[in-house]
Simulated assay, not measured.
Amino acid sequence: MAPRPHTAPDIAERPEAQDTRPSRRGAGLVPGLIVALLALAAAVVASLGIGARPIPPIEVVGALLGQGTQSVVGIVGELRANRTVLGLVCGAALGASGALMQTVTRNPIADPGILGVNAGAALGVVAGATITGGLGLAATVWFALVGAGVASAIILLLSASALAASSPVRLTLAGVALAAVLSGLSQAFVVLDEAVLQAYSFWQVGSLTARSIDEVTGVVPIVVVGAVIALLLLRGLDALALGDDSAISLGVRPGRVRVWSLVSVALLAGTATALAGPISFVGLVVPHLVRGMVGASLIRVVPMSMVVAPALLLAADVIGRVIGGGSETPAGVVMAFIGAPLLIAYLATGRKVGSA
């Protein structure tokens, strides 16, 4: 008897030919979301109650309502509430932008600074400090956003050019080169002015202490716009993760998706960096942790990253208050100590680190 030719059902039954992506996308979604929300709630409570002076949860609630002693109301309602709101906004922005960056560049160790967004924001801070003669908090945010926007515009032009349009690797290398140039310009300004050096040194360590709620809420619409753009791109980015040819066959325009992704990253990472400084590892580590919880689909990774990232950033800020011994350790420093071991442990387990 002649051998029966392979038919579509035969091929589908072969394990290596099956597309396991849909099952992985839904793996652990509900449990992961519950854990992430509980972790975020715990981080918020800790951020409001733990510090040089521990405050019980009941007094924290009263202080938020304007009740209690004047000192407790001042500590919780002003200082710690400011830091908590800033941590929530910056964490969500960094988590989402990190997931987008890793997908657009197809680089599993990419973070929001790899395309020069952070370096552009830093140059904006230096320019603002030079013009204002110091660290004018309200003005510096907008200078940093302008710097991040200029850097993003350069990357957008490069992404549309023949040099990098067809190669995420070339786009990544172009971003690294741009970041080096912008960082060099920032250092040149810094060494010429002591006042600028002091302002820049305070900003560059990454901290949640510098901004008031009014300053944060003033730029929240920018973060919202960036987040909405990111959410609207998720299906296109999922298709793009399969490769440009596959994405085109599914009706997705890779160039357009990349351009809008970079716009979203500029808005999200640029705002977060302008507010809190260049905090590393949040946008790098969190997307990998989330993929281990809910699978590789960006439809789940990006929203979950916007929950997990602020929890991790607030936890780093709380740890910095506790270990400071009277003087606080900036969240950016603590995040480096947390993020580096997490990433090393993730790699050491032999798990496949990928962007999709």
Rank of each mutant, 00 (worst) to 15 (best):
Ser167Lys: 07
Leu156Glu: 06
Val176Gly: 04
Thr105His: 02
Ile155Cys: 00
Leu86Tyr: 00
Ala96Lys: 08
Arg106Ser: 01
Gly134Ile: 11
Ala127Lys: 03
Gly175Arg: 02
Ser166Thr: 11
Thr172Arg: 01
Thr103Phe: 04
Ala177Ser: 15
Gly136Glu: 15
Thr103Met: 11
Gly116Trp: 07
Gly136Leu: 15
Thr132Gln: 08
Ala174Phe: 12
Val104Cys: 00
Val141Trp: 13
Ala174Val: 10
Gly124Arg: 04
Arg170Met: 14
Ala138Gly: 06
Ser166Ile: 03
Gly116Leu: 07
Leu178Lys: 01
Leu100Gln: 09
Leu135Trp: 12
Ile155Ser: 00
Val89Trp: 02
Gln204Arg: 11
Gly134Val: 13
Gly147Asn: 12
Val191Ser: 10
Gly149Asn: 13
Gly128Ala: 14
Leu86His: 00
Pro108Trp: 09
Thr130Ser: 10
Ile131Val: 15
Leu163His: 02
Leu163Glu: 03
Ala139Phe: 15
Gln198Ile: 10
Thr140Ala: 10
Leu171Gln: 03
Ala148Trp: 08
Asp111Glu: 15
Ala179Phe: 12
Gly87Ala: 02
Ser159Asn: 08
Leu171Gly: 01
Ala195Asn: 15
Ala92Trp: 14
Gly95Glu: 09
Ser161Thr: 04
Val117Lys: 02
Leu137Cys: 07
Cys90Gln: 02
Phe189Ala: 04
Gly98His: 05
Gln187Tyr: 08
Ala199Pro: 13
Leu135Thr: 12
Thr130Met: 10
Thr103Leu: 08
Leu157Glu: 00
Gly149Cys: 11
Val181His: 04
Ser161His: 03
Phe202Arg: 10
Ala122Val: 02
Ala199Arg: 06
Phe189Glu: 06
Gly136Lys: 14
Glu194Cys: 01
Glu194Asp: 12
Ala119Met: 12
Val196Glu: 09
Leu137Ile: 15
Asp111His: 02
Ser183Ala: 07
Gln187Asn: 07
Ala148Tyr: 14
Gly91Leu: 08
Ala99Cys: 06
Ala165His: 09
Ala180Pro: 04
Leu156Cys: 05
Ala121Lys: 08
Ala177Val: 13
Leu178Tyr: 04
Ile109Phe: 14
Leu115Trp: 02
Val176Gln: 07
Ser161Met: 03
Ser183Ile: 01
Asn118Ile: 07
Val125Arg: 11
Ser152Met: 13
Ala121Arg: 05
Ser186Lys: 04
Pro112Lys: 04
Ser186Ala: 04
Gly91Met: 05
Leu171Trp: 03
Ile155Glu: 01
Asp111Gln: 08
Phe143Thr: 10
Leu123Thr: 05
Gly128Arg: 15
Ala199Met: 14
Leu173Gly: 01
Leu88Ala: 04
Ser201Arg: 13
Ser167Ile: 11
Phe143Glu: 13
Leu156Pro: 06
Leu197Thr: 09
Leu100Val: 07
Gly95Ser: 06
Met101Cys: 05
Pro112Gln: 03
Ala92Cys: 12
Ala119Cys: 11
Pro168Glu: 13
Thr105Gly: 00
Gly87Gln: 05
Gly175Phe: 11
Ala164Trp: 02
Leu94Gly: 03
Cys90Gly: 01
Val117Arg: 06
